[in-house]
Design a protein around this nucleic acid. Structure first.
Length: 351
DNA sequence: TATGCGTGGTT
DNA sequence: TAACCAAGCAT
């Protein structure tokens, strides 16, 4: 049987997706590698996030900040605002930290080894290997969720994740070639994303069909096994949306740590079983009557919404008024944008 | 090793 | 409709 890696690279040469962070096919054929800055930015955005969701953000970020020096010089609030909607906001905070280390301490050059890359904020085992392989063509073993799934099926490994991770990593290592390791890394991930998919894998068009153990056993759709997840509890909270007579909105910057850390949001109560009222200022608060519902990674949230129109000389106890002309709803994380969308109509039309 | 951390699309 | 899933990292 032919070499598995070479089979997959041949498939990749025909089927590689054209993505904004990749070099053009002709350049790839000439062994041109993509800009490490763009590889890093795309890999961080792609952590636990789909290609479809990332594309527009990547285009926007690289237009605003074409290189790491430009990003390092950007104001925190602008970067957090541009990241809004993409989720996992610790990534954006670490993105800025990392950009500033590279720009200020490393002369604007990303390290070219996994060992040095993994020391940087927001770059872990996967991302360090991916950058080293894709940007510098280092023969690193790149293991993401796609690779885990492909390896589990290729070798019919039934050990549940995450316990299976070391075994799956060894399997991936055994296949990683010294020739074109960057293309190979992307090829396995493309295979997992487009052919060896989680549900309804397209085994009939898979370049590894003949050598896939799970397919022979008929177990491919059941792999990889995963340890069951805990059920999500439902929490409740109150969000306060105040608009001043000049149209300004009362918003609060959330602390850097924890949920939605560093993001802009509406002042509100704690989120738990029975939240205590916590209005940010004294006003004639009106209950909107509709809840904003949102699901985070580990709990469901139902937010009741209180709205108020307040005078020009109002001094809030929490938060800051943002002039209507300077406020962009797109700067808000999704749960806060849901609240705004529900509150806006009532405030504009009058209670 | 387990948990906290978002969101939007798919089934 | 609710559960599941996606190019993980930090602690």
């Amino acid at each position: 049987m032919r070499d598995a890696a070479q089979d997959l690279l041949a498939w990749y040469d025909r089927h590689a997706r054209d993505l904004p962070w990749r070099v053009a096919p002709a350049a790839r054929a000439a062994r041109v590698h993509p800009d490490p800055y763009r590889v890093w930015l795309s890999e961080v955005m792609l952590q636990q996030t789909t290609v479809a969701a990332v594309k527009a953000y990547f285009e926007r970020f690289t237009t605003l900040w074409p290189d790491v020096q430009a990003l390092a010089a950007a104001p925190d609030a602008q970067v957090m605002g541009e990241w809004a909607g993409l989720g996992y906001y610790a990534r954006a905070r670490n993105l800025l930290k990392c950009a500033r280390v590279v720009a200020n301490d490393l002369n604007g050059q990303f390290p070219d080894t996994r060992e040095d890359l993994v020391k940087l904020p927001g770059i872990g085992p996967y991302t360090s290997a991916a950058i080293a392989a894709i940007a510098f063509d280092a023969p690193e073993v790149v293991v993401d969720g796609n690779v885990e799934r492909v390896m589990a099926r290729l070798h019919d490994i039934h050990t549940p994740l995450p316990a299976a991770k070391p075994e799956l990593t060894r399997a991936a290592a055994a296949l990683t070639p010294n020739r074109r390791p960057g293309d190979y890394a992307q090829a396995v991930m493309d295979l997992g994303a487009t052919v060896c998919t989680s549900k309804s894998p397209a085994c009939g068009i898979c370049p590894w069909m003949a050598r896939c153990t799970a397919r022979k056993a008929g177990t491919q759709s059941d792999l990889p096994h995963k340890t069951p997840k805990k059920p999500k509890p439902t929490r409740h909270g109150i969000a306060y949306v105040a608009q001043r007579a000049d149209g300004a909105w009362l918003l609060e910057r959330r602390p850097d740590k924890g949920l939605l850390g560093g993001m802009l949001g509406w002042p509100g109560s704690d989120w738990r079983d029975t939240p205590s009222p916590a209005p940010p200022l004294e006003a004639d608060w009106q209950d909107l009557g509709t809840e904003a519902r949102h699901t985070f990674t580990h709990f469901h949230l139902r937010l009741t919404i209180q709205v108020a129109q307040v005078g020009m000389n109002t001094q809030p106890e929490r938060g800051t008024f943002h002039p209507a002309g300077a406020f962009r709803p797109s700067d808000l994380p999704t749960v806060m944008r849901k609240v705004f969308d529900l509150a806006r109509d009532t405030l504009n039309n009058g209670p």
